[in-house]
Simulated scan of single mutants.
Amino acid sequence: MPLVELNVSTSSRGDHAVVTATGELDLYTAPRLQTALAAVLRDQAGRVVVDLSGVEFCDSTGMNVLLAAMKRLKEQGGAFELAAPRPAVRRILQVTGLDGVFTITDALPAPGTG
């Protein structure tokens, strides 16, 4: 079975940080996202958008990483959003009821909006 990687990058866009993940988010790759989110939360207490448009799969470990980051950011008075989840990831959010917990947008916010 080929090893599926998760690539994570971060960028700052005006009033918010964007964390972009591509690949599969699971037990083995979730620590990579967790590390990136922890760094962003240290540096930016405002608004964080996680771009999920390139994530093909997400398991409970991945969801827990996202939940923990959202909780921490909200405790700091910030806002946490998930942007453009693919149908498979959106389905997981719906089945678990997390679509009512997370702020989910269909697209990334334009630079400078917020």
Results as ranks from 00 to 15, higher is better:
Pro2Gly: 06
Pro2Asp: 13
Leu3Pro: 08
Leu3Tyr: 14
Val4Asp: 01
Glu5Phe: 11
Glu5Val: 08
Leu6Thr: 01
Leu6Asp: 04
Leu6Glu: 00
Asn7Gln: 14
Asn7Asp: 15
Asn7Ser: 08
Asn7Trp: 10
Thr10Met: 09
Thr10Asn: 12
Ser12Val: 12
Arg13Thr: 11
Asp15Glu: 14
His16Leu: 10
Ala17Asn: 09
Ala17Lys: 06
Ala17Gly: 04
Val18Cys: 05
Val18Asp: 07
Val19Pro: 14
Thr20Leu: 01
Ala21Trp: 03
Thr22Ala: 15
Gly23Ala: 10
Gly23Asn: 07
Glu24Asn: 13
Glu24Cys: 13
Asp26Asn: 13
Asp26Val: 07
Asp26Ser: 08
Leu27Tyr: 11
Leu27Ser: 04
Leu27Pro: 06
Leu27Thr: 12
Tyr28Phe: 13
Tyr28Ile: 04
Thr29Phe: 12
Pro31Met: 07
Arg32Met: 11
Gln34Phe: 13
Gln34Ser: 14
Gln34Met: 09
Gln34Asn: 10
Gln34Pro: 07
Thr35Ala: 10
Ala36Gly: 12
Leu37Ala: 07
Leu37His: 06
Ala38Ile: 10
Ala38Pro: 15
Ala38Ser: 12
Ala38Asn: 13
Ala39Val: 10
Ala39Asp: 14
Ala39His: 14
Ala39Cys: 09
Val40Asn: 02
Val40Phe: 06
Val40Pro: 14
Leu41Lys: 01
Arg42Tyr: 00
Arg42Asp: 11
Gln44Tyr: 14
Gln44Ala: 14
Gly46Pro: 03
Arg47Ser: 11
Asp51Val: 03
Asp51Pro: 08
Asp51Gln: 05
Ser53Val: 09
Gly54Cys: 04
Glu56Gln: 09
Phe57Leu: 02
Cys58Met: 09
Asp59Gln: 04
Ser60Val: 06
Thr61Gly: 01
Gly62Val: 01
Gly62Thr: 01
Met63Glu: 11
Leu66Arg: 00
Leu67Met: 10
Ala68Lys: 04
Met70Pro: 07
Leu73Ser: 00
Leu73Ala: 00
Lys74Gln: 13
Glu75Trp: 01
Gln76Arg: 04
Gln76Trp: 06
Gln76Val: 07
Gln76Tyr: 06
Gly77Asp: 02
Gly78Gln: 00
Gly78Asn: 01
Ala79Glu: 15
Ala79His: 15
Phe80Ser: 00
Phe80Val: 01
Leu82Lys: 00
Leu82Pro: 03
Leu82Trp: 07
Ala83Gln: 03
Ala84Thr: 05
Ala84Phe: 13
Ala84Lys: 02
Pro85Ile: 03
Pro85Trp: 05
Arg86Lys: 13
Ala88Arg: 09
Val89Lys: 02
Val89Pro: 08
Arg91Thr: 15
Ile92Leu: 13
Ile92Asn: 06
Gln94Ala: 12
Gln94Lys: 10
Gln94Leu: 06
Val95Ser: 05
Val95Lys: 04
Val95Asn: 05
Thr96Gln: 07
Leu98Ser: 11
Leu98Gly: 03
Asp99Leu: 12
Asp99Ser: 14
Gly100Trp: 06
Phe102Tyr: 11
Phe102Val: 11
Thr103Tyr: 07
Thr103Asn: 10
Ile104Pro: 09
Thr105Gln: 08
Asp106Leu: 05
Asp106Lys: 08
Asp106Met: 05
Asp106Ser: 13
Asp106Thr: 12
Ala107Asn: 13
Leu108Met: 08
Pro109Ala: 04
Pro109Cys: 02
Ala110Thr: 08
Gly112Ala: 06
Gly112Asn: 04
Gly112Cys: 08
Thr113Tyr: 15
Thr113Pro: 02
